[in-house]
């Protein structure tokens, strides 16, 4: 006999549950974690390299890097001084909580204060998959164009900070900063923003200070 069964479950609820477990593991070790998302080439790895160098001696930094196939980015982070674990997603367009979980098992979490996760370069899919990080950051860059918040609202809506990278290119590329920021404000009113250049280093100190403050706030709420 046919029967209608109400289900009403979020389709990605299994991922959400595992993300909570990841966060519990991070919390047990006192590690603050950040998920860095962006389109390919926006400057995620460059920003991470600067962050590793800028925080050397201040915070112990670990890194998980999601890449479709190579370990080039993890190698760059390692060269900058971080302990880096590479996840090859084998073609997947995003990291998920399962992949991060297996990467966490390979790290001795008590060795770190801050864990940075570089997501797969993509402006759509990573927004739907929670990883268990405490904060998420979107790196936008000037050459991508000023219409991106309007085209990828899901990504802009869910993040805790937006880094606008490659401001050194503003003189050469048409980019209406007002229009861009209006889109961000509409989708994510009051979100923290940074304008910087990983090329010239302009604006990086404010970003580094923010990250350090986040780690400090995290510790304060736990003690």
């Amino acid at each position: 006999m046919p029967q209608h069964i109400p289900v009403v479950e979020n389709i990605l609820s299994a991922n959400d549950r595992l993300a909570l477990e990841n966060q519990a593991e991070l919390d047990a070790a006192g590690v603050f974690a950040v998920n860095i998302m962006a389109s390919p080439g926006a400057g995620k790895t460059s920003l991470i390299e600067h962050t590793v160098r800028g925080l050397a001696g201040k915070l112990r930094l670990g890194m998980i890097n999601g890449d479709v196939a190579t370990s080039l980015d993890a190698d760059r982070a390692q060269a900058a001084g971080a302990v880096a674990i590479q996840i090859n997603t084998g073609g997947d367009c995003h990291l998920d909580a399962v992949m991060v979980h297996s990467a966490l098992l390979k790290l001795n979490l008590t060795e770190f204060d801050l864990l940075i996760i570089e997501n797969v370069g993509n402006l759509i899919c990573p927004a739907s998959f929670k990883l268990g990080t405490h904060k998420s950051v979107l790196v936008a860059s000037i050459p991508e164009g000023d219409d991106k918040p309007y085209k990828y609202p899901g990504m802009y809506r869910g993040v805790d900070a937006v880094v606008i990278n490659k401001i050194d290119l503003l003189p050469y590329v048409p980019f209406r900063m007002d229009y861009f920021k209006q889109g961000i404000a509409a989708l994510n009113p009051g979100v923290t923003q940074f304008e910087l250049s990983c090329r010239t280093g302009e604006g990086l100190p404010a970003w580094l200070a923010w990250i350090q403050n986040q780690v400090q706030d995290y510790r304060n709420t736990r003690s």
Binding site: M1, P2, Q3, H4, I5, P6, V7, V8, E9, N10, I11, L12, S128, D147, P149, Y150, K151, P153, G154, R157, Q182, G183, A185, A186, L187, P189
Partner: peptide, 30 residues
């Protein structure tokens, strides 16, 4: 489309009230 401005007051601070659902609501079985 690209219309992130309030049509009434031209305000630009918005909240998504619905439209990001990703749900399995029900199944029919035998």
């Amino acid at each position: 489309g690209e219309e992130l401005i309030c049509p009434q007051c031209a305000g630009t601070r918005l909240r998504l009230r619905q439209g990001d659902e990703l749900q399995l609501e029900a199944i029919d079985i035998e």
